[in-house]
Design a protein around this nucleic acid. Structure first.
Lengths: 335, 335
DNA sequence: AATCGAAATGTTATCGATGTCATTTTCCGC
DNA sequence: GCGGAAAATGACATCGATAACATTTCGATT
């Protein structure tokens, strides 16, 4: 019934290069070359075949190529999709990273296979050409398991001391430093750091912040467990109730904390930034439209995704690749 | 150099079923059957081969199977990863859906290929066995384009009138109704709906809400543009400033709006829920830990992802499949 | 013990694209 | 118009798994 050879094809069976070859009166290898932009084929032939292919609605068979090439041209991305202590689930950051990764890999001809730790042993993941891990917080154990597969591995997060895998992350330390520099230039003297320093990334922000201040101001650390508006509001409200509480700057580990803090200050008729200057972290979409527009440390997560992908491509192609931290930018607005 | 045949393999070339077959002293088809749990092979043989395979670190070649089977065993998921007007980017919902989709599809032996509208024409997407669209808001045009590919298509969102594709979504109308029922049981009389009804989903919630109230109370609609805490706070603050403002219930289109509203009420010393009862939407992770714990309409997004995947698997296997709306649950807490 | 049939295993061809090497065509300069 | 090199094209084998069909093994029955 299926007439694979006939020219009058109403193919319910997909077209192959061989079919195109017959239609064009050439051999299938020529078709292959034409579609791959090989210099081994005339521009004229190439065009003819290309047009034919699109007319006929030809669809390239990825599996066949992959089999032949001995590669899957796919990269597995392991995402922690369940909420994790500390990081609020509403954090869009895995999605931004994924966006960058997808953009870069797909453009390079790779597909992105989404997976999770529980699904690591499935065939599509095992067959991937590489592995990108978007962990939240500590990796350690997970990474070691993944390394045993021998696949190229790239990890998002904070670099740890003696690792031998590639890490890409946002430079939290520098983020803290940039906040400090702003306070220094404003001559602030009594500062508050607001955030749970048990959290590795927050720890870094705080450390960078304090180091950069270099004793030019006192820094009081408050560590709310959550990263929410509410937590920020409550922390600062509580602080303001204490006698002798007195500070002129707040550096918060998230924008929501910062917003909560600002609201708490406003309730006590403290003006931002005249009385107290506030800096947030993440530069979430709401920051710029907050009233007043929030000064915040911006992380280039999409770029982070792109960079993760680039490192992966480098590894796959056997190029030398190194870990890298992404810069942050202090978005100075009105707080 | 590569000693593909030797038993003392340090293979740098991956093992194939044929290799295993030689090692086991059987034919490769037997290996294939054993690894697939075919009933055509003795339990004994199967075990022997399985053990051998895992000892030898055999890795199944997906491309080869896919080529042979004429299927990719992959489903492309089109995600809108950039923030969209209305929906705050911090909304974790694409990620939750993705989690459900991935879990279900991967377990069924499919891989999930992540993509975006811009990347639709790439080979891995074109080669997928099906397409899941996670659109935010209206699809229309996008869907029509996708339908032309002839691939099985499943869409997340609100069902529209005359569509001929499968839609899975959360039943926003019922969500509104459940909020109304609660207010009715409490005997609330003067209600406020808080949310941008230009947004299709919000529109449905509002409509369900009003219909279910059935005139038992007045409903005043306020439509802040954003879904944020700030917007909720400001909306209710403004309302409270008006003379004659008087209401005993607020149904908000997002948890953040609801929280903002509660805060605004608190500032005016109005008690929740004694004076005013408040219901949020989404039951975001922060809702339960809010003070006071927020009553909210829960959407089963992860289940939504699973359902999307199931519909897709059904379509791929040629089973009859219908659109479906997921229930919502009113999580009654203290507001 | 011979026979039959089911169960277990094996043989061969195939999926579609591509590398290798062989062959043909084209285009020079003399 | 001819030799020869470069350019263009083609034939064949191949990647690894599986379906279809062929063969062998085994057990039960008479």
């Amino acid at each position: 019934m299926p007439s694979n050879k006939s020219v009058a094809r109403k193919a319910e069976t997909a077209l192959t290069m061989e079919d195109l070859a017959k239609l064009a009166g050439v051999s299938k290898i020529t078709v292959s070359r034409a579609l791959r932009d090989s210099p081994l084929v005339t521009a004229e032939t190439r065009e003819k075949i290309r047009i034919l292919a699109s007319e006929q609605g030809y669809r390239f068979n990825v599996s066949a190529r992959n089999l032949r090439m001995g590669r899957s041209y796919s990269v597995a991305v392991v995402v922690e999709m369940t909420p994790v202590r500390g990081r609020p689930m509403s954090d869009p950051y895995p999605l931004e990273l994924l966006g960058g990764i997808t953009q870069e890999l797909t453009t390079a001809g790779y597909s992105v296979v989404l997976t999770s730790k529980q699904l690591m042993n499935t065939a599509p993941v095992q067959g991937a050409d590489g592995l990108i891990l978007l962990g939240q917080g500590s990796h350690g154990e997970a990474v070691r398991t993944l390394q045993q597969t021998g696949m190229p591995l790239v990890v998002w997060g904070a670099p740890e001391a003696d690792t031998d895998y590639i890490v890409v992350g946002s430079d939290n330390r520098k983020g803290g430093i940039s906040a400090a520099e702003r306070f220094i230039s404003q001559g602030r003297q009594k500062l508050v750091f607001l955030g749970d320093v048990d959290h590795a990334e927050v720890q870094e922000r705080c450390a960078g912040f304090i180091d950069a201040m270099g004793g030019r101001a006192t820094v009081h650390i408050i560590r709310p467990k959550a990263f929410t508006f509410e937590a920020g509001f409550d922390s600062i409200s509580a602080l303001l109730k204490k006698k002798g509480a007195n500070f002129d700057g707040v550096f918060a580990a998230s924008d929501l904390l910062a917003m909560g803090a600002i609201r708490a200050l406003a309730e006590k008729n403290l003006r931002v930034p005249e009385n107290v200057s506030v800096i947030g972290y993440d530069d979430t979409p709401g920051a710029a439209s907050f009233v007043p527009p929030l000064t915040s440390v911006h992380q280039y997560l999409r770029d982070g995704g792109v960079l993760l992908a680039k490192k992966m491509l480098g590894l796959i192609e056997g190029q030398p690749v190194a870990s890298e931290m992404l810069p942050t930018t202090l978005m100075v607005r009105q707080t």
